[in-house]
């Protein structure tokens, strides 16, 4: 804000029209020279203002997609638009509005943290050298690195490097932040700080595109998510809808598990599983209150009776038929 200078044609084209997605790809495809199909006909839509979780096992094509969005890799087929502009053609106009952390931070080990940021800021044609020092200091402060700013980057811990990488993405006010595994290498306290930071940025109106292998992290901060495996997009949409797609499980805690299991089956509960004093199963169509009444009427002593909400992980397993950490 506050930069109310005359509009330059090149930059005035970068704008968010009402309702226009921040990222939109059509049949985006990348086939590497070896013939390996890394991304296969991707139609991805990231709405403006969302915190968008990008999920998928290692090797599923997430990073290739991010690199195509950032103009680092030329697509084999299809188109990608970022902030309404075609990539990679409009990198000069688009990328000053985009902060990115791609596949972990990369730093000049022989430079201090502060000098690393100065170096990256000098590479941005839209960065004003007069405000450079102040912006670098603000970015360092924002990620909690002010005290270590003068230390050489090679002496940084993985978590500090990650923070410095984030600081580089925050050198300017951004319209879009692309964060690839931003909490990698951070301790739980650091993770919480980063999550808070992401929420703050999102509440300022920045769209955040977040790739992570930590499903609960996506669930905690993201409003939307997309799931990729083997180069294809399986699903995308608001997080609430995705997890709603996987049904929850009925959990009955009781000292009489055998009897409970029999009654539950009678009541139409599917896939009944007994483990110690817990009996779980797929909830029936009928009212759960009636199921509980049936249990009590049959003399089953019920300690607990709940439906465990499906997590994004359940949704993921339901979609891919495999565990999350299995490489595709």
């Amino acid at each position: 804000m506050g930069e109310l200078s005359a509009a330059e044609p090149e930059h005035s084209e970068v704008r968010a029209e009402a309702g226009e997605p921040v990222i939109a790809t059509r049949a985006l495809t990348k086939r590497y020279r070896g013939g390996q199909l890394a991304v296969d006909g991707l139609d991805l839509t990231v709405p403006a203002g969302s915190v968008f979780g990008f999920l998928g096992p290692n090797g599923s094509g997430k990073t290739t997609t991010i690199r195509m969005l950032m103009g680092l890799i030329e697509p084999t087929a299809g188109t990608a638009r970022v902030l309404g502009q075609p990539m990679p053609r409009a990198t000069r106009a688009v990328l000053p509005h985009v902060g990115a952390l791609i596949e972990g931070p990369a730093l000049y080990g022989f430079l201090s943290g502060r000098d690393n940021l100065i170096r990256y800021d000098s590479a941005d044609p839209a960065a004003d050298p007069r405000t450079r020092k102040a912006r670098v200091a603000a970015a360092l402060d924002r990620v909690g690195l002010t005290a270590a700013a003068g230390k050489k980057a090679k002496a940084y811990s993985l978590g500090m490097k990650q923070r410095l990488g984030l600081a580089a993405a925050l050198l300017q006010p951004r319209r879009l932040l692309v964060l690839d595994e931003p909490t990698n290498g951070l301790d739980p306290q650091g993770m919480r700080e980063i999550r808070t930071l992401i929420r703050e940025l999102a509440s300022d109106g920045t769209t955040v595109f977040l790739s992570s292998h930590l499903l609960d992290e996506i669930e905690q901060v993201c409003t939307h998510a997309a799931v990729m495996t083997q180069g294809r997009l399986i699903t995308q949409g608001p997080v609430a809808e995705l997890s709603a797609g996987a049904r929850g499980r009925l959990v009955v805690t009781t000292p009489d598990p055998a009897e409970a299991a029999r009654v539950l089956k009678e009541q139409g509960v599917g896939d009944v599983v007994v483990t110690d004093d817990r009996v779980t199963g797929e909830p029936p169509e009928s009212d759960l209150a009636d199921v509980n009444t049936a249990l009590v009427t049959a003399g089953v002593r019920v300690r607990g009776f709940t439906v465990e909400r499906a997590s994004l992980e359940d949704a993921f397993v339901a979609l891919t038929g495999e565990g999350f950490d299995v490489a595709g």
């Binding site: 103009g71 680092l72 985009v98 990115a100 791609i102 990369a106 590479a123 044609p125």
Partner: peptide, 8 residues
């Protein structure tokens, strides 16, 4: 990659 996405 960071110099290029800056974008240099």
């Amino acid at each position: 990659r960071y110099l290029l996405v800056a974008p240099a």
